[in-house]
Computed example of a mutant assay.
Amino acid sequence: MAHAKPHLPIKVCVLCGRPFAWQRKWARDWESVRYCSERCRRARSAAG
């Protein structure tokens, strides 16, 4: 059974507005992460 991860920091995606939690792949640059996914990151140029 997987364990819950209740104490991870959460941000809101700038593009879609969805909340997303910290992931290990973002550990080095969590302060600069703005998008919840690669899809939102790529769509930033189309949106604005």
Score class of each variant (00 low, 15 high):
W26Q: 10
A27R: 15
H7E: 12
R44T: 09
R18V: 12
W22V: 02
K25F: 04
R42P: 00
V12M: 04
L8K: 11
C36E: 05
P9C: 05
R18H: 14
R41V: 01
A47N: 07
A27V: 13
P9K: 13
A4M: 15
F20L: 03
A46R: 14
K5R: 14
C16A: 06
K25C: 06
P19L: 03
C40Q: 10
S32R: 14
F20S: 02
W26V: 01
E31I: 05
K25A: 10
R41M: 09
A47E: 07
C40P: 12
H3E: 14
E31C: 03
A21N: 02
G48S: 15
S32G: 08
S37N: 09
A2C: 08
C13T: 03
Q23R: 10
V33R: 04
A4Q: 13
A4R: 13
Y35H: 11
Y35P: 01
V33K: 04
R24P: 03
R34V: 02
P6N: 03
A21E: 06
E31Y: 02
R28N: 14
R28Q: 13
V12E: 08
F20I: 02
E31P: 03
R24W: 06
I10W: 02
Y35Q: 03
S45R: 12
V12G: 01
Y35I: 01
